[in-house]
Write a protein that binds this DNA or RNA. Structure first.
Lengths: 323, 323
DNA sequence: AAACCCGATGCACAAACGTGCAAGGAGAGT
DNA sequence: ACTCTCCTTGCACGTTTGTGCATCGGGTTT
C-alpha cells in the first residue's frame, strides 16, 4: 500500500493527514488521492475539509513584510495597536460585515493561541459569531476563562455564554472555566460577598493572570444596540445613568467614555466584568470590531488602552483614521 | 470601493493579497471576489495562483504533535535525523517519485529559510527537480552558495548549475554565489592553486560558514546512475577506483562508503565539493532522496552523519528502517 | 510610424470540486 | 433478534475552478 503509517490516532485523522499532504504539498487532484487511499473522491473532499477544520492544515496569508498594509500601519502609528484590517466592500450590510470579520478573526486568533495559555473570553454577538468559525488548534494545558457573567433577570445566560465558551474549549482542546454570576448585580454588596466565595474567587483569580483576552465591544447608544442592551441586562434607570455619564461603550459589561475614562460610572461597581486595571494587566488583548456603529465605542476602548490587537473591517478602519 | 489600501507595491501584489484574504480567510468564491475587485473570475484565479507562488499564501500541513508519524519517529530514533516522509504509492515510477518528493521538499524547505542566512546548494537531478518547484519566500540579506563545481571535460556546466542556483535565488530573493570550477579536477595541484585565487577562495570561505546546506545523493553503482555519473565527469579509471574503494555514494561529488568512511578515496582529493568536515560543520543539512536505488547511498550518508534533516519518499523510508 | 514583443484580460470549455441524498453498517437499547 | 440511531459511504448533480486561446494595449526597436 501507499502509507506513511502512523499509529494510535483515529484512522480518519491518519487519512486526513495523508490526503492533506497529497493535496496541499503534492498538488494531486482529489481523484488521484481517492485512488491512492482506495476511497471515493467525495470522501477525500470531506477528509480535506476535516483536515482544515481540525487544524491539520494551516493556511496563512501574509503581507510582504516590506510594505505593511497602509491602513494597518496608520492605525498602529496613531493608536499603538497591531491592526488586522479585514477587507469588506463598503456597501456590505452590518450582519455580513460581522460575519466576515468574525471569520477572519477566528483564523487570526489561531496564531495567538498556544499550549499552557489561559485565554479570557467575553460574550456577545461578536464573540458568538467568532466562536462559530474557530479553527481547531490542538494545545495542551490551556484554559478558557469566561470574562464576565451572563445572567440577567430573565435567564441565567449560561446556555448562551457557555455555548461560546465550549466552542473555544473544543477548538483549542482547553478546559473551560465558566463564570455563573449575573452580568450586572442589583446590589454591589452581593457582588462583594460572592467574590469572597471560593468557587467564584477562584475564577476571578484566574482572570487576574490571563495571557490573552478576546472581546468585542458594546455600543449602548449606537444604531444597533448590542446583545447586552436588548437582553434585559439593564433597566431604564441604568440606561439613563449611562447616558448621563457620557458612556459610549463597554468591554465585558465594563463601561467607559469616549476619552477612555471610567471614573464615576456607577454601574461598573455592580458589573461582573474585570476592571480596567485587570484587563490592561493582560499581555495580549484582542478586540474584534465590525461595523461603523461601533466606531465611537472603539475610539473609547483605544483611548483607554484596552486593546493590543485590533481586528476590524476595512470600512470602520478607514473611519477610525479619518479618511 | 472595497479597499484595504496598501501603497507602493505593485497593484498586482496588492490585488493578489486582497484576493487571498477573501479566498482563504473569508471563504468567498472567486466569482464573488472578482465582483469585489471589478475583474473577471479567471483573473482572480490567476491572482490566487500568483499569491501562492510568491509566498503571499502559506499552506502548512502539520501532524498532531501528540503522535508523530511512525516512520518519521523510527528514522529519528534509529539515525538521529529529523525525517519528512513523503507519501507515495509503492508502484510509482522513479521519475514520478522524484517529482513528488521534490514538490514536497520545495515546500518544506521554505520553513528552513530566513533572512540573513546563507544556504549551500548542490546540483544534480534531484536538486534540479527541487528548484523547479520552489515557492517564493521573500528574505533579506540571504545568500545562495554553490557547493561544488559543475564543469567537466565537455561543458562548463555553468548553465545547468546556475539555472538551479538562480531559481533558489529568485525564490528567496537572495544573492547567488556561483562556483565556476570543474566538478572534479584532473590534477589536485590545480585545485590547490585555484583555491588560493581570491575570487575562488572567497566562495570557499563562504562555504565554510553556511547556515544550511541542501543536497541530493549520488549513487554511482545503482540501477539508475545520477547525473554525475553520466555527464562525463568521471572517466573509466575513476569509476574503477571508486568501485575498488567500495564507494556507495556521494554528496556534492564527495564520495563515501556504506559505513560513512572516506579515508583513502583518492578522488576526493580532486573533488571540488566541500570536505566532510566542512559539511558537518553546517548547522542544518537537508538531504533529499527519492527512490530505492539510492538506499545504499543514503545509508552511507547517514552513517557519515552528513544529514540533519531528511526528506524521503515513503517506500525508501520503509526500506531504510527495514520493514 | 510601423513592426514587434510582452504581459494582462475575458471568454469558453473541460476539469475539479462540494454537498444533498439515499443506502449501508456498526453499535446501543429494548 | 429486532429496532432505532448515528455515522459513513458513494453517487449524481450543480457549482466552482483552471487554462488554452484570441484579443488588446503599452512600451520598445527598427
Amino acid at each position: 500500500m501507499n502509507s506513511t503509517s502512523t499509529a494510535g490516532l483515529p484512522p480518519k485523522t491518519r487519512d486526513a493527514l495523508t490526503a492533506a499532504q497529497l493535496y496541499y504539498l503534492q498538488d494531486l487532484t482529489m481523484d488521484a488521492i481517492a485512488h491512492e487511499l482506495h476511497t471515493s473522491r467525495s470522501s477525500v473532499s470531506r477528509l480535506l475539509g476535516h483536515a482544515r477544520e481540525t487544524g491539520l492544515v494551516e493556511i496563512q496569508v501574509k503581507s510582504p513584510l516590506d510594505m505593511p498594509r497602509q491602513l494597518e500601519g496608520d492605525i498602529r502609528s496613531e493608536f499603538g495597536v497591531v491592526a488586522h484590517v479585514v477587507p469588506v466592500p463598503d456597501q456590505t450590510s452590518d450582519v455580513d460585515r460581522l460575519e466576515r470579520v468574525a471569520l477572519s478573526a477566528a483564523r487570526i486568533l489561531g496564531g495567538f493561541v498556544d499550549s499552557n495559555m489561559s485565554m479570557g473570553v467575553a460574550w456577545g454577538s461578536t464573540m458568538s459569531a467568532l466562536s462559530r468559525h474557530l479553527l481547531a488548534k490542538p494545545t495542551h494545558n490551556s484554559t478558557i476563562v469566561q470574562l464576565n457573567g451572563a445572567a440577567n433577570p430573565r435567564t441565567t445566560g449560561l446556555l448562551y455564554a457557555s455555548e461560546i465558551l465550549q466552542r473555544f474549549g473544543a477548538a483549542y482542546s482547553a478546559t473551560v472555566q465558566q463564570f455563573p454570576v449575573p452580568a450586572v448585580f442589583d446590589d454591589p454588596a452581593t457582588k462583594a460577598a460572592l467574590w469572597r466565595e471560593r468557587s467564584i474567587s477562584r475564577v476571578v483569580e484566574m482572570q487576574n493572570s490571563l495571557d490573552v483576552a478576546v472581546f468585542g465591544l458594546g455600543s449602548p447608544f449606537a444604531g444597533v444596540p448590542s446583545h447586552v442592551y436588548i437582553g434585559g441586562y439593564l433597566d431604564d434607570d441604568d440606561f439613563a445613568s449611562l447616558r448621563a455619564a457620557g458612556v459610549v461603550g463597554d468591554v465585558a459589561t465594563v463601561f467607559y467614555r469616549e476619552d477612555g475614562s471610567t471614573d464615576g460610572i456607577g454601574l461598573n461597581e455592580r458589573s461582573s466584568g474585570p476592571s480596567m486595571e485587570v484587563l490592561t494587566g493582560i499581555a495580549r488583548r484582542v478586540c474584534v470590531v465590525a461595523g461603523e456603529t461601533k466606531l465611537q465605542s472603539l475610539r473609547g476602548a483605544l483611548a483607554a488602552g484596552l486593546v493590543t490587537d485590533l481586528i476590524v473591517d476595512s470600512g470602520t478602519a478607514r473611519m477610525l483614521v479619518g479618511n
